[in-house]
C-alpha cells in the first residue's frame, strides 16, 4: 500500500468521523442528505460481498467492516433517532436517488469484468459510488448556507477521491498491474463532481468566510 492510498483511506475515515461527530455533538443532521447516506450504505454492502470469499489483509477487512457499520449507523440515526430525525431537511432532499440505483445497475449488467453475481455487484457499487454524492451536493446547493462540519465532511470525502487518483497514478508507474479501468474511470467522474464544491470551499477558506454555495 502506498502513501496516497493510505491518505485516501484516512481522509475517507475522517469524513465519516466528522459526520458522526456532527450528528452526535449537535444532535442534528441538517444539511445532510439521507439519500446520499442510503446510497453509500448500499455501495458498501454490495462492494464488500467479498468479505466472505477473499481475504486480503486485516487492514482491509477492518476498514470494510467499519465502512459498512458506520454507513448503516448514520442511516439508522437519520431515520430512527427520536431527536436527530427531526432536523432532517426532508423537503429539500428530494433527489430521485432510485434513478441512480437503476442506472448504475443497468450499467453494471452491461459493463463488468465477469458475468458473475459478485462481479456485477462490484461494478454496480463502483458506478453507484461515483454518483452517490449528487443528492448531497444538490441539498447543499438548495440550502445555500453550509455549516462548518457539513462543509468539512464533503471536503474530506472529496479529498479521499483525489488521493485515490494519485494512488492509481503512482501504481501505474510502480507496479506491473494497475487498478482496474472500471474503477479508474468511475473514480475520475466521481472526483470531477466535487470540482464545483472545491472551488467554493477554497474561496471561503481563502477569504476566511463561511462557506456559501450560489443558488
Amino acid at each position: 500500500m502506498n502513501i496516497f492510498r493510505f491518505a485516501g483511506d484516512m481522509t475517507h475515515l475522517i469524513s465519516i468521523l466528522v459526520l458522526l461527530l456532527k450528528i452526535y455533538a449537535t444532535k442534528s443532521c441538517s444539511g445532510i442528505s439521507l439519500k446520499t447516506q442510503e446510497l453509500y450504505a448500499l455501495v458498501f454492502l454490495t462492494r464488500y460481498l467479498d468479505l466472505f470469499t477473499d481475504f486480503i489483509s486485516v487492514y482491509n477487512t477492518i476498514m470494510k467492516l467499519v465502512f459498512i457499520a458506520s454507513s448503516l449507523a448514520i442511516v439508522w440515526c437519520m431515520r430512527m433517532h427520536r431527536v436527530v430525525r427531526r432536523s432532517y431537511d426532508k423537503e429539500i432532499d428530494t433527489f430521485r436517488h432510485y434513478f441512480l440505483i437503476l442506472a448504475s445497475f443497468l450499467l453494471a449488467v452491461l459493463v463488468h469484468e465477469k458475468f458473475t453475481f459478485q462481479e456485477i455487484f462490484w461494478a454496480f457499487s463502483i458506478y453507484l459510488e461515483a454518483l452517490a454524492i449528487l443528492p448531497q451536493l444538490v441539498l447543499l446547493q438548495r440550502s445555500g448556507n453550509v455549516d462548518n462540519l457539513t462543509g468539512q465532511y464533503v471536503f474530506f470525502l472529496g479529498a479521499y477521491r483525489a488521493f485515490y487518483i494519485l494512488n492509481w497514478i503512482y501504481r501505474y508507474f510502480t507496479e506491473q498491474h494497475f487498478s482496474r479501468w472500471i474503477a479508474c474511470l468511475s473514480g475520475i467522474v466521481q472526483t470531477a463532481l466535487y470540482a464545483d464544491f472545491f472551488y467554493y470551499y477554497f474561496i471561503s477558506w481563502k477569504n476566511n468566510a463561511k462557506l456559501q454555495l450560489p443558488a
Binding site: 483511506d9 467479498d50 477473499d54 482491509n60 469484468e113 492509481w168 498491474h177 482496474r180
Partner: peptide, 10 residues
C-alpha cells in the same frame, strides 16, 4: 489501466 489480480482497494 491494466488488470490487477486482486481487488485490494476499498
Amino acid at each position: 489501466c491494466r488488470q490487477s489480480p486482486q481487488k485490494d482497494e476499498l
